[in-house]
Amino acid sequence: MELNFYEASKFDISRERKYNTSMPTRHYHNGYEIFYLVSGDISYFIEDQSYQVVGGALLIINMNEIHKLVNSSKESFERITLLFQEEFLEDMFPYNDSFHVLSSFASGKHFMPLNGQEQSFIEKLFDKMIAEYNKQPPGYEYYLKTLLFELLIFIYRKSSTLPAADHTGSNPIHKKIFDIVDYLNQNYHETQTIQGISSKFFISPSYFCKTFRENTGFTFTEYLNNVRIKEARRLLTGSTLKIADIAERVGFESMTHFGRIFKDITSLSPLKYRQTYKAELD
């Protein structure tokens, strides 16, 4: 089986929506990689582990670990990939033997499902990094280092909460669950219930809830809310639609419920979010 080595950049970050795309070969590189799936679902292979990854999950890949992405569903997905070498952060490492911010990469805990607030937090960090990297204003490299260090501390702390034997993402692939994920990604704007999904896919509600959590790292409600709020955030900053229309468009029947879930995930009301981030984009 073909295996390729790539020389890692000192620092590189990109955000792309991909269609019908898989990595052509297994590969490895002499840098650290942080992979975040914004939306969609894919399979990811790291060394001898396979992970089913859905939107809102983070993967970390150590130097020289062999990995490959496979898009079995052939549906579109959006991802952020950050690749860096240790030398990029050399002048920021604290001289403390009890703490090394890159130690998470050697822990074997590659897979990290993130709750809504965590997703919102790191997506804001990624957005700032991408803007700095692309525009390169004065002092951008120092700010990139600061943002990356903040992200690495988040990963270090998140990793420390995961049990050593936790391989949530590497459970045997349950095809039906990922058929359901694909269905939710396409139909989040419609009314969706555990009972309705269970009936549609011929699976008992209790087994569905158990296997959905095991395979994705999220409960059904968490995943559905994350997908809906992610689309609402896009519409709030990228359109002039009224907030009530956005709530209805992404699948919420009640403005009150939409506002509560949105604030739970983003820490801002929909109006405040629009005012804050639309201004930044403008």
Rank of each mutant, 00 (worst) to 15 (best):
M1A: 10
M1C: 04
E2F: 05
N4Q: 14
F5P: 03
F5Y: 14
R17C: 11
M23H: 15
M23Q: 12
N30Y: 05
G31W: 05
E33N: 07
I34D: 07
Y36V: 07
V38Q: 08
G40M: 02
G40K: 03
S43D: 14
F45S: 06
I46G: 01
E47Q: 15
D48T: 14
D48K: 15
S50A: 15
Y51H: 13
G55T: 09
G55F: 03
L58N: 11
I60Q: 09
N64T: 03
V70P: 01
N71E: 12
K74A: 09
I80M: 04
M92Y: 06
D97H: 11
S98H: 13
F99K: 05
S103P: 05
A106G: 08
G116F: 02
E118Q: 15
Q119E: 09
F121V: 04
I122H: 02
F126C: 06
N134S: 15
Q136Y: 00
Q136N: 08
P137I: 12
P138L: 01
Y143E: 13
L148C: 04
E150S: 14
L152I: 02
I153F: 07
S160C: 03
L162P: 00
T168N: 08
S170I: 04
S170D: 15
N171M: 13
K175F: 09
K176R: 15
V181N: 10
N185E: 15
H189W: 10
T191L: 08
I194G: 02
Q195R: 15
S204H: 14
E214Y: 11
E214F: 08
E214A: 15
N215H: 10
N215I: 00
T216H: 03
T221L: 14
E222S: 13
L224Q: 11
V227S: 05
V227W: 05
I229P: 05
E231I: 15
E231Y: 14
L236K: 02
L241T: 00
D245W: 02
I246T: 02
A247R: 01
R249A: 14
R249F: 08
F252I: 08
E253K: 14
S254T: 09
H257S: 09
H257K: 10
R260E: 06
I265P: 00
I265G: 00
L271T: 11
L271F: 12
Y273Q: 02
Y273A: 01
L281G: 11
L281P: 01
L281N: 12
D282P: 01
